[in-house]
Design a protein around this nucleic acid. Structure first.
Lengths: 217, 217
DNA sequence: AAATTAAGGTGAACAGTGTTTACTTTGTGA
DNA sequence: TCACAAAGTAAACACTGTTCACCTTAATTT
């Protein structure tokens, strides 16, 4: 207990860390993890490449922080919609639309957040502490919304919210990835004319929700 | 018109090309595109790294061929199910399940096929000739199945098969990617006990199909 | 059959990458 | 002031995809 909780040295350190992160963010958003090289990054902030390793253990750790802040942004936005007092159906649709919207605005962030971890890595110990990650929290917003739908009778009584949330999440994720990877989606061909992206997102959301609804109209 | 359509030289060339591809396939299936290096590959087949470039313009081109053959396999399997004469509902479910099954068996192939192209690349000229690609053909199997569902009255009359197919494809894609990237999925935590993967796939398929069904029953 | 052309194969190099090591400078706390 | 830790660096290590000049071998043409 020598100094204040935030010593000058510590604050200075955090400042530089932040400077590195914002410089990294700019490049990552435009070119992704492959486009972001430690050497280029070091040059941008007038440091030697090795200096970065005094602030981050590895490039992966640096990129992980970018991804985590992105999911914080995503969570905030979805939460804001979920907390509205608009009718349930509308609110649910808007949540899905917002998730897809925010995600596709920063495609590299979103894709990297899932693509990141090694694919065939052992089934043990993956995602430690998922519940406390931003990604995890975003999922639980989804789950509680489905719980509301079930308890108010909009959805079938026999749907398991936890299960349904995963299914819904997968569908949202799929649409997002499609848009992210196929620039023209929902058009599959540059020439094809179809629904606008926004309308398609709403259509997809409707489709998902319809799968949960009690079909007595 | 000097020789036969397949000259000895040509056949020899194709043989070596195939040898390279099968060696590449083995590594790619286990470690993905990043794990597959030209140098390691060259060593495996007792050639110099430069030799590979006499058979493939670039590593990307080589990997593209691996991806295309994978989608050929995927298409074959889905087609086999789609051509069955089992009841419609069952057949549809099995198609979805097979798609996810095959895809998750070769996670790197599947993920790379979508992740491959540059993310923010201009909206023009992406995916030239989608209709003729294996990926495109797989999509059209889906579309015609939905057409069958609509015409036989299982699905709502107002669903646009082309649109619904895209929505369904996105949902399938999402589940596949979830399984591919989260080793424990549908469990989100190693400790969590939930539906088996196979059962979850069927649940998800049900959910999707329910979204299309005419709800008078 | 001889000469010419094309294809197959190679070692070395170019331009990158993430990361580590040994070293120097700088700043802080005792 | 002195000692110790933190910050910063140049240079190297071990890689990567790719290209170039060069040589050998096979196929074609004269």
């Amino acid at each position: 207990m020598t100094a204040s909780v935030s010593s000058p040295a510590e604050r200075r350190r955090n400042k530089i860390r932040a400077r590195i992160l914002t410089a990294a963010e700019r490049v990552f958003a435009r070119e992704g993890a492959d486009g972001l090289s430690i050497r280029r990054l070091a040059e941008n902030i007038d440091y030697s490449p090795a200096a970065i390793y005094k602030y981050f253990k590895s490039k992966d750790e640096l990129v992980d922080e970018l991804k985590e802040s992105f999911f914080e942004l995503l969570l905030e936005n979805v939460h804001r919609i979920a907390d509205r007092s608009t009718p349930f159906a509308e609110r649910a649709r808007d949540c899905v639309a917002t998730y897809v919207q925010i995600a596709t605005e920063k495609p590299y962030h979103y894709a990297a957040a899932f693509t990141g971890q090694a694919l065939t890595s052992g089934p043990v110990d993956s995602e430690p502490g998922f519940e406390n990650s931003k990604k995890g929290q975003a999922f639980y917003v989804l789950r509680s919304m489905i719980e509301e739908g079930v308890s108010t009778g909009v959805f079938r009584k026999d749907v398991d919210p936890a299960l349904a949330a995963k299914s819904l999440w997968a569908s949202m994720h799929g649409l997002t990835m499609m848009i992210v990877h196929i620039p023209t989606f929902p058009a599959l061909n540059p020439a094809q004319n179809t629904l606008s992206r926004q309308d398609f997102i709403l259509f997809h959301a409707d489709q998902m929700i319809r799968g949960l609804e009690a079909n007595d109209g």
